[in-house]
Amino acid sequence: MSVSSGFALICSSRAEVAESLIRELEPLAARCEVASGRSEWPAEVPGVAFIDLADASQPVREVRLAYGRRTELVAIVDNESVERLIPALAAGCGDYLFYPINPDELGLQWRKHLAGEGGTGARRPGGLAGHLQFEFPSRVQFVREVVAEVVEACERLAFSGSRATLNLRVAVGEALSNAILYGNQEDPEKLVRVVAALSAGSARVTVTDQGQGFDPQAILDPTRPENRERSQGRGLFLLRSLTDEVSFNERGNSITLTLRE
């Protein structure tokens, strides 16, 4: 069956979430159906499925299996479910909306969908085998999940052991924290971009923020006795200590770290 682009499937057991989506989508000529935790999906192929990550089932993979890539998947996240966003993006969601829903954002997304542009595209993870790509808002709650995705991909495609579970984990975590805290100053409107290239025995990860950049030479050595009681300044030091190569772009808002087995 071909895809019905004007048909929106809403996967949420929370009535208020479903209602607010329907309230905004119906004036945009969308037909909506709510699937609240059931295992049988409508035979008609939806153009978009909105998946509430607060639900215990959060059926990203099930919806992907039922409809394949014909259906665009949009995650609905709130402050409680925000840690599930990165796994949902990795599992096939091409975009996301924060709940409570911003009507302008939803309207823009729906019109892009009807125009065949498939959401913002910018947030879409994926790429070639061995490449991982994410773009996410500057919230420290995301760090854990993004790091877990990169380490898991490294163990699958590049190398395993403590080089992955300690060195890469710490280095990527520190690069993300710096990008969120110092680069983007925790402004959730600003995004952090992660690109990882993984091949047998080698992992290269680039983290880019939307900040002004900084001078890496200006960071003090935290191991010197006079700096040891400072509460900041260890991230970059750890990152450098645990990787084989570190480089910055000229502006200083993009760091690339390389680790070999």
């Binding site: 984990r169 710490v170 975590g173 520190e174 924290s177 805290l181 509460s231 900041q232 260890r234 991230g235 030091f237 750890l238």
Partner: peptide, 8 residues
């Protein structure tokens, strides 16, 4: 696990 923010 602990990161540099945790150490700080």
């Amino acid at each position: 696990y602990i990161d540099s923010s945790g150490l700080g």
